[in-house]
Design a binder for these strands. Structure first.
Length: 247
DNA sequence: CCAGACGTTGTT
DNA sequence: GTCTGG
DNA sequence: CCAGACGTTGTT
DNA sequence: GTCTGG
């Protein structure tokens, strides 16, 4: 899930805002200088701090090595399954996990295309259980057109040897959305609504207050999925499809 | 008791 | 730090 | 997750 | 083909 983040590099005024907020040129470059962010890269995140929620760069890999503060790639912690949030030790070991938000233009998935041009839902039940090797993969952009995408995430606060705070983050994945199976059949990220941010980023509110969100397979925010070119992410000449909230 | 894990996705 | 497996 | 490497010896 | 790095 979320093979890459479509970063918010071109969002008007973001650079001067980060500059005014005290970020160094290199910190800003690290998170705004890339259109496509991969796991272990820096992404832009809203994280709870003693001073309240702050927008800052975060390493997109939740578990870091506590000595080097480099991603601990023994475990794939760029995603966090929603059904493990309340139970996994990963989130209670120090530093414990807090809720955060990855702010993005959208994210990319690579749609597997199987022999005969079939997509996942064209496969037999037996094939779906163990999908064959795809003959190719088609890049898709999934986004909320005209708006930033607010991806529900968890984060950890670390201190480096110089006593500087560093933040790592992982994006929360829900069970698969039935209409998204052809693009990605395993999971779908938790997309938050702006009005949910205040409680979401309040560390005094317990994770269990959001339990109802963690099993949801309906989208709650309208998102569009569009096949795009690898080079410049321009739309292919195919119809996008839209996932609309029910009701 | 100690040692070791602590995770997700996609695979033949 | 804390739970699980042996 | 995808992209990219996949190797050794001798060097400023 | 498979592992590593990001």
């Amino acid at each position: 899930m979320c093979g890459a983040i479509y970063n918010v590099t071109d969002f008007p005024l973001l650079e001067p805002i980060l500059d005014m907020a005290g970020y160094s040129e290199s910190e800003i470059e690290k998170v705004l200088g890339k259109k496509e962010c991969r796991p272990t890269d820096s992404v832009l995140a809203m994280v709870p701090t003693r001073e309240g929620p702050r927008l800052m760069p975060a390493t997109w890999w939740l578990k870091l090595d506590k000595r080097t503060l480099k991603p601990d790639t023994r475990w794939a912690t760029f995603n966090c399954r929603s059904d493990h949030i309340l139970t996994s030790k990963l989130h209670t070991i120090p530093p414990k996990s807090f809720r955060s938000v990855v702010v993005a233009n959208g994210f990319f998935e690579w749609q597997p295309v199987y022999s005969g041009g079939r997509l996942f839902t064209d496969l037999t039940e037996a094939e779906q259980a163990k999908p064959p090797k795809p003959i190719r993969k088609q890049r898709y952009l999934v986004h909320t057109p005209g708006q930033l995408m607010l991806l529900g995430a968890l984060c950890k606060h670390w201190l480096d040897e110089a006593g500087e705070p560093k933040v790592s983050t992982g994006i929360i994945t829900l069970p698969p959305h039935p209409r998204f199976l052809d693009v990605h059949h395993k999971s779908f990220p938790l997309v938050l609504k702006p009005e949910e941010l205040e409680d979401w980023l309040n560390p005094k509110v317990e994770h269990s207050a959001f339990e109802a969100l963690f099993g949801v397979t309906d989208v709650r925010v309208e998102v569009e999925a569009q096949a795009v070119n690898d080079g410049d992410f321009s739309a292919l000449d195919t119809e996008p499809f839209v996932l609309r909230p029910v009701g």
